[in-house]
Design a protein around this nucleic acid. Structure first.
Length: 280
DNA sequence: GCGGACATGATTTTTACGTCA
DNA sequence: TCTGACGTAAAAATCATGTCC
């Protein structure tokens, strides 16, 4: 019984499976999936400015959605595009929005950059087929909203996903990925915490085990020392039969002729060697 | 400026489950 | 009723990139 109890006493419940299936576990969202890539580049972003950063010459093509007066030939701005060819192959133009200068700027001055980030995420939306992997950086605001939402429910139904995506100007897929990663990393953290707790519990139990072993040893040695006295105990004392381990007392027989009776005139000495089963 | 550690967004693979013929 | 194919969501594993020290 101890084992189970001990585990319970640790107060631990390994997180595996602890994320209940959300009540909103859903029907497959075929429609949504199909729609996903078709999300429009609405004019919402018309008044957004790009944060000017270096980029490959192809960027030109990706800047065309910006307001005409903000449109710049980034490739030319960057000038010497020799070394940028490499970058261009792996980064489809606009992911350069999330380069270090842009991030830093955002952290320093907050909101302005938010919009820029949004542009980049939508841009990714458009050319997502073209580039294999690019990384946007969510703004604090976006992360905050996602966090809040995650606190409410660790999984999203299609509607929630869509709403959140719209609210944050992200693709539903991005919201979905964020939640996936969040769940995975939350679980990982929880597992680490549980692991630590189990380690501590194990240490405690080991210590206690040692202590009990020591106590046992002491009791054993005490018993061997006290054995002669123990043998001289009066008959009224409870005795343990060494062979059947039954405890017997003086009153057991209930007869005055019983050598173990309380009122026995003479003390009865129990000799385990000569009467191995005297109590039985 | 470089390199390693870390955080985190994105992708791929695996698994579990429901539906349908 | 059973079964295999199929589709989907979520988890797990992994990769890639950006940031910080």
């Amino acid at each position: 019984m101890g084992d189970l109890e001990d585990v319970r006493n640790t107060g631990l419940a390994l997180a595996l499976g602890s994320h209940e299936k959300p009540e909103n576990h859903l029907q497959p969202d075929h429609q949504e999936k199909k729609k996903g890539k078709k999300e429009k580049f609405s004019l919402k972003y018309d008044n957004l400015f790009p944060s000017l950063t270096l980029g490959p010459s192809e960027v030109e093509t990706t800047t065309t959605y910006l307001l005409p007066d903000t449109k710049m030939e980034v490739g030319k701005v960057c000038g010497e595009s020799v070394d940028l060819q490499k970058q261009a192959s792996s980064v489809s133009g606009v992911s350069s929005f999330s380069n270090s200068s842009s991030i830093k700027q955002e952290r320093e001055s907050g909101e302005e950059e938010v919009e820029v980030e949004r542009v980049s995420s939508r841009v990714n939306d458009e050319d997502e087929e073209a580039s294999p992997r690019k990384k946007l950086r969510l703004t604090k605001q976006q992360s905050g909203v996602l966090e809040d939402s995650f606190k409410e429910h660790a999984t999203l139904n299609p509607k929630q996903k869509k709403d959140l995506a719209e609210q944050l100007n992200l693709r539903p897929r991005q919201v979905e990925v964020w939640f996936q990663n969040r769940r995975a990393r939350t679980k990982l953290k929880q597992t680490e915490v549980d692991c630590e707790l189990l380690k501590k519990r194990c240490e405690t139990l080991t210590e206690e085990n040692k202590r009990l072993q020591k106590d046992l040893q002491e009791l054993k040695s005490l018993r061997s020392i006290a054995a002669p006295f123990y043998m001289k105990l009066p008959a009224a004392t409870l005795t343990l039969c060494p062979s059947c381990e039954r405890v017997s007392s003086a009153g057991d027989a209930g007869s005055s002729t019983n050598p173990f009776s309380i009122g026995a005139p003479k003390p009865h000495f129990y000799n385990p060697f000569t009467h191995p089963s005297a109590a039985c």
